[in-house]
Every structure is written in structure tokens, then in C-alpha cells.
Design a protein around this nucleic acid. Structure first.
Lengths: 145, 145
DNA sequence: CATTTTTATATGAAAATGAATACAACTACT
DNA sequence: AGTAGTTGTATTCATTTTCATATAAAAATG
């Protein structure tokens, strides 16, 4: 009995990239149809858990290059979605907070995201969902140092 | 007992994006250190399993936008890594084949990729690896229609 | 503490990307 | 066959992203 899968279908990096792509794709369309950029969503979602992050801290969650995030954040501030303020403790740092306008937006998007995930995982039992997420969490923890 | 995870750490799309990012990151650095673009790697890897794909077919595996792939493929042909030829059956189509030069490159990169994956999954038992990959494969199948 | 090194963010020029579209070839329908 | 719609690829142009670097502040060093 030989290996049943082609390289690509047995290559973890590809399976992750592909599933990530597919899962996000639909939802990104949904967001874009409402006139929002997916970058905005990613930034707001990352801030939704823990507000007042530094640009660097935010950058670690949001998976952008630093100059990209820097510019996006300035732009989002100009659209009143975020507030940027110098950190008093370290005057190089910029602390980023969601504005009230941003909060209402992210609340809406979070609800949509949860609903979308529910659909994506509709065929999975609660145990399977936790198993999948748990394995991914473990992988992330394992790799991020 | 309340929910132990923040939104982001319990959101499948994020877990996938993050783990995908982390897994690929190191390997991409490794490739870039050798002077190769990660886009080239993705294209060559996708072709390694099944040569002579059409641009559209290749595009489905490689997760680029069509104009991006179109340009990359022309560029790679000019560097003698690929061969583009009109499909006789359908003269709109371009069939893409790996050149001999491309073959030696991809053989090298495939070996590196497998070695890298082995390191990434070093802490996982064979069963766990198959479980993880199986779940991802299932997710991909489930979503790609 | 003065000096060097490191860290946090911003910016400008250059490259990559993508939406829209053009164009050519194929398919379906009448 | 002729026409209308569809599909496969290339191209254009505006936007986005990134590399390289600047700047300023903090930390480390002697």
C-alpha cells in the first residue's frame, strides 16, 4: 500500500493555507459587499479582545508587515474607527484603541463572523470542533517563539 | 465557568490564518535566503504533483488571483523554470509545464519542505499528524464547491 | 553619564497586487 | 450557420504592500 496523497494534499503548510483561504474567502466577500475592507475587519477583530494595544502588539496578532499596519491604522484613525495615542510610559509607542464608531462596527462584524463560522462548522459535532481548534491552538503555541 | 478563550483564539478563521502563517513563515525565510521567491515555490510545488496544468487549473491550487498568476508564470518562463504552450484542444488555454531547470529546483525545494515539515511536526505522533491533516483535508473538501 | 545598541513607529520609492476590461476562442441556442 | 453568452488568458491602471531607511526614544554598556 503506497501513499494515497499527492505532495500538496499531504503537506501541512498547504492544507493550512488552503483551508484558511477557503474559510476566509466567503466571509471576506460578505464584508466587502458591505463596503468594508478585510484588513479593517482583521484589525478590529484583533483589538476587540484586548483594546489599547501597541502597534507592535497588534501587529503580532494581525499578521501584517509593520509598515502596512502603520499606514492602515493611520487611515482608520482618519475615518474615526480607531484612536491612536502616544504611550506615556514609552513615548515611542502608539497605543491603539477602538473608537465608539469602531465599536459598533466591530460588534456587528463579530456577530456576522460567529454566524458564518457556525455555518462552516455545521457538519461538525461540538467535540470535533473543539478537537480541530485545539489542535490548531496547540500548533500556534508550539510555533510562536 | 465562562468561556476560556478570547474571540480570536476561538475563531476558526483566525486559528487557521495564524497557524498557516507561522508554519509557512520559517520555510519562506529559508527559501528567500536562497534567493527564491515564495511565489515561485508555491507554483512549482503545485505543479510538481501534476504537470501540464492549465493556468486556470493551476490557479485553483495556488490560491492567487488570476492576473497575479498570469504575470508570474510569464516571468518564470522567461527564467526557464516553466514552459508555456497553447493547448491544442482549446486554443485559449495555456498549458504549463515544469522545465528541466525547474525540475531540479523543485526537487531540491520539495526535499527541504518535507524536512521542514518533519521539524514542525516533531512533537506529534504519527496518529496525531494524520488526524490533523485529515481534519484539514475534510474541511477543504467541505468548502470547495 | 556619554556612547552604543536596540526598539517602536513612520515614510518614501519601488514592487506587487487586483479590479476592471479587452480579446480571442469556445459553447449553446435558434 | 449565425448570434449570444461564456470561458481562458492577458493587460492596464489604480491601489496596496513592502523594502529600506529615517527618526526618536529607551536600554545597555563601559
Amino acid at each position: 500500500m503506497t501513499k494515497p496523497f499527492s505532495f500538496i494534499d499531504d503537506y501541512l503548510a498547504y492544507l493550512l493555507a488552503r483551508s484558511s483561504h477557503l474559510v476566509s474567502e466567503q466571509f471576506h466577500h460578505q464584508i466587502q459587499a458591505q463596503g468594508w475592507s478585510t484588513n479593517y475587519w482583521r484589525i478590529l477583530a484583533s483589538l476587540s479582545d484586548e483594546d489599547g494595544l501597541t502597534l507592535t502588539q497588534l501587529n503580532q496578532r494581525v499578521l501584517f508587515k509593520q509598515p502596512t499596519l502603520s499606514k492602515l491604522v493611520v487611515k482608520m484613525e482618519s475615518e474615526k474607527l480607531l484612536i491612536r495615542q502616544k504611550d506615556d510610559a514609552d513615548k515611542r509607542s502608539v497605543k491603539i484603541t477602538i473608537s465608539p464608531k469602531g465599536r459598533t462596527l466591530v460588534a456587528d462584524l463579530l456577530a456576522q463572523a460567529k454566524a458564518h463560522e457556525k455555518k462552516v462548522l455545521a457538519d461538525y459535532s461540538e467535540e470535533q470542533q473543539q478537537l480541530l481548534k485545539g489542535m490548531l491552538r496547540r500548533l500556534v503555541l508550539h510555533l510562536q517563539d
